[in-house]
């Protein structure tokens, strides 16, 4: 940045900070997601940091912003706090430049240009920090979801249960199918009960995945019973015209297990 611009900003240093703090307080009233308790301290730190970038080496300034952003990100401050804060900062500067008549207009434009570049650079860096962290989080969550996807639990000899919990997308459906079939081979199950009590919505897509899974189960030589069909799920299945008649369904896991025992020529008897 040109020394003349830096000099200009420095000469107004205190005034800029005062105005910025004044205006930024209003942000808090619009955005209730900001943590109120240390709002003022953070503002203080933020504005000092912005000013600080004028003196520091580019890399050092970036590093300081990075650690500041990371800290606030972890504390749950929204990205909009930074972007709005920086936009406010720009507005304060512009106002100051244009209201002071001692500046020549040519110099004003030049200065504005420099300020734009500077502020945009800081905003871009902050946005990059945030999106990078979001993508990272998303990736970790996907991994976590993968780990909790659908175990096959052997409950009796030849009978296993797979409880499905949560929404089923194509990626998960593939994983479920693989776990299901490999589990069948491992436990030598003849009957598998797929329990959809924990699946919030059964639409055409989900039903399609379940039908495919049960067809694959049949190919490896076992049988599939769909259990845990709640009234509202039965309604949507019929209303959507999904044909599930090809494989047996039961309302509860208990009834499913009874059917499974029957299919393998066994039953539960009372010994009293």
């Amino acid at each position: 940045m040109k020394p003349s611009v830096i000099e200009m900003i420095y000469s107004q240093h205190d005034e800029i900070i005062r105005q910025w703090k004044n205006e930024v307080t209003e942000l808090n009233q619009f955005d209730s997601t900001l943590p109120t308790n240390w709002f003022h301290e953070t503002n203080e730190e933020f504005v000092n940091l912005i000013m600080g970038t004028l003196e520091l080496e580019e890399n050092e300034a970036k590093e300081q912003f990075r650690s500041f952003a990371e800290r606030l990100m972890n504390a749950g401050w929204p990205l909009s706090y930074f972007t709005k804060g920086m936009q406010l900062f720009r507005r304060v500067l512009v106002q100051m430049l244009t209201s002071d008549e001692s500046f020549e207009s040519e110099k004003v434009f030049e200065t504005l240009n420099e300020v734009e570049k500077w502020v945009d650079g800081v905003i871009n860096q902050l946005v990059d920090e945030y999106t990078g962290s979001w993508e990272n989080t998303l990736h970790l969550q996907k991994l976590a979801l993968k780990e909790l996807s659908a175990p096959l639990i052997p409950v009796f000899e030849k009978i296993s249960v797979m409880p499905l919990v949560g929404t089923i997308d194509t990626e998960r459906a593939k994983l479920i199918m693989e776990n299901l079939l490999e589990g069948i081979i491992e436990h030598r199950s003849q009957v598998v009960l797929i329990d959809i009590t924990g699946v919030p919505v059964v639409d055409t897509m989900v039903a399609h995945h379940i039908i495919q899974a049960s067809e694959a189960v049949r190919l490896v030589g076992a049988e599939c019973i769909l259990v845990g069909i709640r009234p509202e799920i039965a309604q949507t299945i019929i209303n959507l015209g999904i044909d599930l008649r090809k494989f047996p369904t039961k309302s509860t896991l208990r009834k499913g297990i009874e059917t499974g025992l029957e299919l393998t020529q066994r039953k539960i008897i009372s010994t009293s």
């Binding site: 199918m177 693989e178 079939l181 069948i184 081979i185 495919q212 067809e215 694959a216 190919l219 030589g221």
Partner: peptide, 26 residues
């Protein structure tokens, strides 16, 4: 008998169901 998981899934992916064919684990 003994159709492997990978084989079963591949057939399903391709839309081949073999509806009328009886199967068993082993």
């Amino acid at each position: 008998t003994g159709i492997q998981p990978g084989v079963a899934i591949t057939l399903i992916d391709m839309g081949i169901v073999l509806d009328e064919v009886p199967t068993a684990l082993d």
